[in-house]
Design a protein around this nucleic acid. Structure first.
Length: 826
RNA sequence: GCGAAAGUGGCGGAAUUGGCAGACGCGCUGGACUUAGGAUCCAGUAGGUUCACUCCUGUAGGGGUUCGAGUCCCCUCUUUCGCACCA
């Protein structure tokens, strides 16, 4: 008979709800603990990935509850974005309807898993009461100079007259009409995240994140120290600024490389409409899809612009080339090319017969242009560098930069790889940008009193192809808040990453109608103590959220500098080696599992299969193993209820125990110790569960406990109670049910963490292993209080050791206390 | 190409600071039992060798450090993830 998981899970979910154990007050005597799992996109269906992620968060929440914290574990929905809009387009409906229906469905499924979410704090980014405050924050950023507009190239479908996201481009064509995608230059809104680049690079010791994520983020921000130099254009007042980390090579510049997107090139395109070669090349490169253009395999191509600039250091005339291998997004968008000392420049120069000039010599001073087969990128000695000849190139970097600064050609500077954050999306289903464009006043912010700028409801997203907001005149046309003249609303909406950059703060005060959140509540709850989410967010979401937090700190809204104290990046759920998903056809519906085996089984399977930060491979048989494990516990407790009740909370003298119960006492205490380390310190839940299983095996091996002495029964009852306490965070329903069956009045989390006593972990003999030259040659049981000399003597008496040492000379004997004796012999 | 990880039985994984490799679970093999269940209980299960005790080999591959290496160092290979040719 399987245990009645269905009834008891329903029962306990109801009791937890009634007792409001998931609902955290904004204060009180207990210390606070804020557990946050990244909120989901409301697809309407709980998948195994959700079940896995949120199981981890729920384990942490319940552990913290047991430890007596005031635990907040909120849940909400990242509800804006393309999937809802796409669904609406294909099904000719409205995203709000499907989204709200999905939210209702998901909440029910979350409850079925027994997660302790504080539903009083639920939020959804697509609701005006939430996005009003996103608009409010946008305005405050604007006022502080952190928002600006600039032109940039976007994927554009002429047929649909709309911007396409990268994922809407399929093999260079529009996903809907298969028209070839072009690049169109559009005005876009940007957040100046680069203003915070330096601070974002600082993770100092207050942030307890996986080293891996910090490294990835540091590399993403990409700090480099270098020199900015301006190359004047020949016969013109214009200058081309470049950034280089190798000013020591500046005398070796033989051409200037510009991408077609460069403003100068864009100007030449307008000036020379009949230059077919130039027009065609630029159009081709700009329209190349960005992935293939950024691939290393792509051959370097370019055309000579027939223009020159001047190397200010030596007056050299430098050819200007337009190339496909330089990107507008990094540095100044122009590269001073030094083929002798940069591999890409070298390849390009070889292909187009551009001169190569060695300015850094190797140790032998033997480098000759004509003999080079690849660039010499190492440090060396300056050559062909005027007064700097003969200097080590490291010194050349410094001296040449000083000379550049003295002459006003440039300066030492820092550059980051990080780019400003483009937040404009030409879509309906997102937070409207609170801007009005007035023909007289220009860009005007919507007054706070008019927030939120609500999305118009009477939109049929499927009807138009371009941004649906353009097709709602009563929404689009407004009077200017400043001059009252006819004006138009901004139709761009915000990137959904904006919504998710501050939601963790809104949970602290989710119903506030005056400000995004009250500072006293934020001060109480923030920062998030434990954040849980996928590694895929290492660079984007986690960086944006840190940026927003620093901005909110500068506004005086929050304290401290980091939003997330600890971070756990959990793995994915895989099936047959691939990410589980509907599109792949390998999805397992968690509801199907819950209906047949209960959510406790699903939780234990997911948590036991691997440590939380690693991927979980789905396995039907292993799932059954989790189910059997819970059944064994249920049988053990319900089958021995009388014995347990008799022994429960009885005191005993360890000397009075029979030998199996002495061992059980040790097992109980040892297991609690391991479980506490694995659950609390190491957060390695798979081994915490394994420890419970081992202890369960020890308990099961005791037959007919009811025939035992009172002292033995006391130990027996304590052993089983410990199992339930240890099981609680992982399989809370069954643990709570059996706890109640034992006659406990309190809920399990109120019982506190299981405790162990060191005195019960002391053993009268210890197993030592004996190694000879690193090979295992024997074992011995000895008393723990022997000294090293006595241990050595004992070891040499072990029969197999004696045999192995025959004919060998002992060089050294090493004793590792409590573990082993290592003998080095010859 | 750059960046970040990973590689241990038939499978998922364990070994926390360099100290008994393979905990725990799955699967498999044999046995017991039976209300025949997606049962339960007991025993075995890295490979080789031996009747057995033993012994040998073994953590992607190759070197090294050490009394001792899955763990540290160097090189190579493979796989996964991310990427914006990072000048």
């Amino acid at each position: 008979m399987d245990y009645p998981f269905f009834e008891l899970e329903q029962k306990w979910q109801k009791i937890w709800r009634q007792k409001r154990i998931a609902n955290a007050p904004d204060g009180g005597d207990k210390p606070k603990y804020y557990v946050l799992s990244m909120f989901p996109y409301p697809s309407g269906e709980l998948h195994c990935g959700h079940a896995s992620n949120y199981s981890i968060g729920d384990v942490i929440s319940r552990l913290k509850l047991m430890q007596g914290y005031n635990v907040m574990q909120p849940m909400g929905y990242d509800a804006f974005g393309m999937p809802a809009e796409n669904f609406a387009i294909t099904h000719n409906s409205h995203p709000r309807l499907t989204t709200e229906a999905n939210i209702t469905a998901m909440r029910k499924q979350f409850d079925g898993m027994g997660f302790l979410f504080d539903w009083d704090r639920e939020l959804s980014t697509c609701r005006p009461e939430y996005y009003k405050w996103g608009q409010f924050i946008f305005k405050r950023m604007y006022e502080r100079g952190l928002v600006y507009r600039k032109k940039s190239f976007q994927n554009w479908c002429n047929e649909c007259a709309t911007v396409l996201a990268n994922e809407q481009v399929e093999e260079g064509r529009c996903w809907r009409c298969s028209t070839e995608v072009e690049q169109k230059e559009l005005e876009q809104w940007y957040f100046k995240i680069t203003d915070y680049a330096e601070e974002l690079l600082d993770f100092s010791d207050t942030i307890q994140w996986p080293e891996r994520v910090i490294t990835m983020q540091k590399n993403w921000i990409g700090f480099s120290l270098g020199t900015r130099i301006e190359f004047p254009l020949e016969n013109s007042d214009e200058k081309i600024p470049v950034f280089t980390t190798r000013p020591d090579t500046i005398f070796g510049v033989t051409f200037m490389a510009l991408p077609p997107e460069h403003p100068l090139v864009q100007k030449w395109l307008v000036e020379e409409p009949d230059n077919k070669e130039l027009q065609d090349f630029c159009k081709k490169v700009i329209n190349e899809d960005k992935v293939s253009r950024s691939s290393a395999e792509t051959t370097k191509e370019g055309i000579f612009s027939r223009r020159y600039c001047i190397n200010p250091l030596n007056g050299d005339k430098v050819q200007i080339w337009i190339t496909n291998y330089v990107l507008m997004d990094y540095g100044t968008g122009a590269v001073m090319a030094v083929p002798a000392h940069d591999q890409r420049d070298f390849e390009f120069a070889k292909k187009y017969n551009i001169p190569i000039k060695v300015v850094i010599q190797n140790a032998e001073r033997s480098l000759k242009e004509a003999e080079m087969t690849e660039a010499m990128t190492e440090a060396g000695w300056q050559a062909n560098s005027a007064q700097f000849d003969g200097l080590p190139s490291e010194e050349g970097i410094q001296k040449i930069t000083e000379w550049i600064a003295e002459n006003g050609w440039g300066e030492a500077t820092k550059t980051y790889r990080l780019r400003d954050w483009g937040i404009s999306r030409q879509r309906y289903w997102g937070t409207p940008i609170p801007i009005i464009h007035c023909p007289k006043c220009g860009v005007v912010l919507v007054p706070d009193s008019d927030l939120p700028v609500k999305l118009p409801e009477n939109v049929q997203v499927g009807k138009t192809t371009s941004n649906p907001l353009l097709s709602v005149p009563e929404w689009l046309n407004v009077s200017c808040p400043q001059c009252g003249e006819a004006a138009k609303r901004e139709t761009d909406t915000m990137d959904t990453f904006v919504d998710s950059s501050w939601y963790y703060a809104r949970y602290a005060d989710p119903k506030n109608t005056n400000v995004p959140f009250a500072s006293d509540k934020a001060d109480y709850w923030l920062p998030v103590d434990q954040y849980i989410g996928g590694i895929e967010h290492a660079c984007m979401h986690l960086l944006y959220a840190r940026f927003f937090y620093k901005f909110m700190r500068d506004m005086g809204w929050v304290k401290g500098g980091e939003p997330f104290q600890r971070l756990l990046t959990q793995g994915m759920v895989l099936k047959d080696g691939a990410k589980m998903g509907k599109s792949k056809g390998n999805a397992v519906d968690p509801q199907y599992i819950i209906d047949r085996f209960g959510s406790d089984t699903l939780r234990v399977f997911l948590l036991f299969a691997s440590p939380p930060e690693k991927d979980v491979e789905w396995n039907d048989d292993a799932l059954m193993g989790a189910f059997r494990f819970l059944n064994r516990i249920y049988r053990l407790i319900t089958g021995n209820l009388e014995a347990i009740k008799r022994g429960k909370d009885q005191s005993f003298e360890p000397e009075a125990l029979s030998s199996p119960f002495q061992e059980l006492l040790y097992s109980t205490n040892y297991t609690i110790k391991r479980w506490r380390e694995d659950s609390l310190s190491r957060m390695q839940y798979n081994t915490a569960i394994a420890a419970i299983m081992e202890h369960l095996n020890n308990c099961v091996s005791i037959k007919n406990p009811e025939t035992r002495s009172k002292a033995d029964l006391a130990v027996y009852a304590a052993a089983l109670k410990a199992i339930l306490q240890m099981l609680y965070p992982y399989a809370p329903h069954i643990a709570e049910e059996l706890w109640q069956l034992l006659g406990e009045a309190k809920l399990l989390h109120e019982s506190g963490l299981p405790e162990y006593k060191e005195e019960y972990l002391v053993q009268d003999s210890i197993t030592y292993v004996i190694q000879i030259n690193g090979k295992l040659r024997g074992k011995m049981e000895i008393s723990p209080d022997l000294d090293d000399e006595a241990i050595k003597a004992e070891a040499l008496q072990v029969e197999n050791v004696m045999r192995s040492l025959e004919g060998h000379e002992i060089k050294k004997i090493i004793v590792i206390k409590g573990k082993m004796v290592s003998i080095a012999a010859k």
